[in-house]
Design a protein around this nucleic acid. Structure first.
Lengths: 227, 227
DNA sequence: GAAAAGCATTATGAATTCAAAATTCCCTGA
DNA sequence: TCAGGGAATTTTGAATTCATAATGCTTTTC
């Protein structure tokens, strides 16, 4: 049950810009010309500028007073930091879910898990990812913590642009599935500490950081960010 | 080394409104009259409205399209959810801090800890809180994760209004100090898992939820939120 | 030929204006 | 007396306008 959002121009515009950034049509670091976007969207500068303020506090855009807006650069360190954070949030979601989820909820997640295993054995990567994501979303939802959900979505939005580069080696994949086995076991036992721990350490929250090395045009050295 | 923020009207206004909300001069649920605030601040509606958009995405304000803005109500559940989240973030900060902090950093925190103990034994509540907060801030800083810091500050801002009601019973206080002893021990050993665990479970992240019961004018029953 | 100064152009910040939606208030009629 | 309807008022959403800061270009000087 998600509340409907009455549409206003600035929200529409913010959504559109979010999409542009997510799909790379507005490149990281690219200067955002108010005039040009206004013309593209067919709106005046007022709602556009309001949208930019919102996007700035969401961390997608950078506002340089008197000098315009630019799409925020993702440095390696920022992405790493964000993934660390998302790992912590997933851990919390697991802990809370264990305490709150219904038996039916657990059964539903187990069912998803089984489906995921099938995709894993068939090596259907895309389907695997989709079901995998639904499992994590289910835990998030079961945690019944709206603030957590809001924050997670915000973080996830910030790094969506680099998700493309998701690569899966065989050994990574196997270990990810192992993690999931442990998750399911902990969930069934409602062992919240254990589930939290597994989720915090879950490969998915670390894996991609490795795979983005090189994707990001980064000023700082990666080793420095890693240290 | 924190970068300077060029001042613009909308930032100034946002800061002022944040302060008004934090200190209760704008009460939770209170309708925010654009006209009146404009007159108070002596600015036009444009920067005011931009500020409101920012505050809305920070979660301090609620925008009802065509029907104005209101100070966001804090429900018991929202505060509880926020504290759960902050606990998870503190846990992460501890884990990261363990891995990154210098020996001097550890020494500095130990020194703060000693000062805190003195205030505890002298029953200097206000001083105790101040030093206590500096310890947690030091860990946050040592974690060297800007995204984490940003998010923590945002969450902390949201619930600042109810921090006033902080009450300390003797047994709570004793247990909080015990937690801190464990923290220091884990930090010295650079036992990141342990420090993370202690911080996540740390009383400070749970305590106040109990003490706000009754402070918040809340539609939903507390037991329901707790279940 | 390069650098600096100054002017023109452009882009941004903020106030004002206009339009539309919501609210208030008053009136009518049962 | 009170419910319903409708006009007047207020308030908000968005466009426009105005002022100022930044940028770029030309010219001038060394």
């Amino acid at each position: 049950m998600t509340k409907i959002q009455p549409r206003t121009l600035y929200r529409e515009v913010a959504d559109r810009i979010r999409a542009l950034i997510e799909h790379g049509e507005l490149a990281p670091g690219e200067r955002i010309s108010e005039k040009q976007l206004c013309e593209n969207f067919g709106v005046s500068r007022t709602p556009l500028r309001e949208a930019l303020k919102v996007l700035a506090s969401e961390g997608l855009v950078e506002l340089l007073p008197n000098r315009g807006a630019r799409v925020k650069q993702l440095t390696y360190k920022m992405v790493k930091d964000t993934y660390d954070l998302m790992g912590a949030l997933e851990g919390l979601s697991g802990e809370l879910a264990c305490q709150q989820i219904s038996d039916e909820g657990i059964a539903a997640i187990c069912a998803l898990h089984e489906r995921m295993l099938v995709h894993y054995h068939n090596r259907e990567l895309s389907d695997y990812f989709q079901v995998n994501q639904r499992i994590h979303e289910s835990l998030l939802a079961a945690s019944n913590n709206d603030v957590l959900l809001e924050m997670y979505n915000n973080l996830s939005q910030r790094v969506k642009r680099v998700r493309y580069s998701k690569k899966m080696t065989d050994s990574y994949w196997r270990r990810a599935v192992q993690d999931h086995e442990e998750m399911i076991a902990a969930l069934k036992k409602r062992d919240s500490k254990r589930l939290g721990q597994v989720l915090r350490d879950h490969l998915c929250n670390k894996l991609e950081v490795a795979s983005i090395a090189g994707v990001i045009d980064d000023g700082e050295t990666r080793s420095a960010a890693n240290s």
